[in-house]
Simulated scan of single mutants.
Amino acid sequence: MAGPSAAEDVVRGFLRDVRSGRHPDRAGRYPAPRVEAAQGRPGAVRAVVRRAPERYAEHVREMLRTAGPWLFQVTGVIDTGGQVEAPWRQTGTAREGPRVVEHGSAGHTVREGRTTRYWIEFHQETRPAGPAADAAARRSHPTRERSP
């Protein structure tokens, strides 16, 4: 059985290191010098921005300053031959607020070992923070534990 494709490795590394908030300074390893980022799947795009790796790193740092740390779980990575898609679940607690769970997905186009374009879509839900709420979240939204 074949292992992950090189494109999958790029996407897994980016999500594990950068998007997770663990090492935003590693943003230069994965994307091309300019990346087109679309909010929404192709055909349903709501906004497009162009980012350099250092701007994406700053974007992640700003999210950390605003929302605080989070748990980021990639629930699968699928190489469709032209794009690598990766659904995720992000859980955190808003500063002095409720627990926030974000379910999202991204599709990355990888060329010559670098992401050149990606789209994201997500939705958020809020829940009271605490162990009972965490247990209820696991029951209602089970995730397949799969490392990025």
Results as ranks from 00 to 15, higher is better:
residue 3 G to W: 01
residue 3 G to H: 01
residue 14 F to D: 03
residue 14 F to K: 03
residue 16 R to K: 03
residue 17 D to P: 01
residue 18 V to N: 03
residue 22 R to P: 02
residue 26 R to M: 03
residue 27 A to P: 01
residue 34 R to D: 09
residue 35 V to S: 04
residue 37 A to L: 15
residue 37 A to T: 11
residue 38 A to K: 07
residue 39 Q to E: 11
residue 41 R to A: 13
residue 41 R to C: 07
residue 43 G to F: 04
residue 43 G to C: 02
residue 45 V to P: 00
residue 48 V to I: 13
residue 48 V to S: 06
residue 49 V to W: 07
residue 49 V to R: 10
residue 52 A to D: 12
residue 57 A to N: 07
residue 58 E to Q: 10
residue 59 H to Q: 11
residue 64 L to F: 08
residue 66 T to A: 14
residue 71 L to Q: 08
residue 73 Q to T: 13
residue 78 I to S: 07
residue 80 T to H: 07
residue 81 G to T: 02
residue 89 R to E: 08
residue 92 G to F: 04
residue 95 R to T: 09
residue 95 R to Y: 05
residue 96 E to I: 09
residue 97 G to D: 06
residue 100 V to I: 15
residue 100 V to Y: 05
residue 101 V to E: 07
residue 104 G to K: 02
residue 106 A to L: 11
residue 110 V to N: 05
residue 113 G to Y: 06
residue 119 W to Q: 03
residue 123 H to R: 11
residue 126 T to M: 13
residue 126 T to C: 10
residue 128 P to L: 15
residue 129 A to N: 09
residue 130 G to C: 13
residue 131 P to L: 15
residue 132 A to Y: 13
residue 133 A to M: 13
residue 133 A to E: 10
residue 133 A to N: 06
residue 135 A to L: 14
residue 136 A to Q: 10
residue 138 R to E: 14
residue 140 S to F: 12
residue 143 T to M: 13
residue 144 R to I: 15
residue 146 R to I: 15
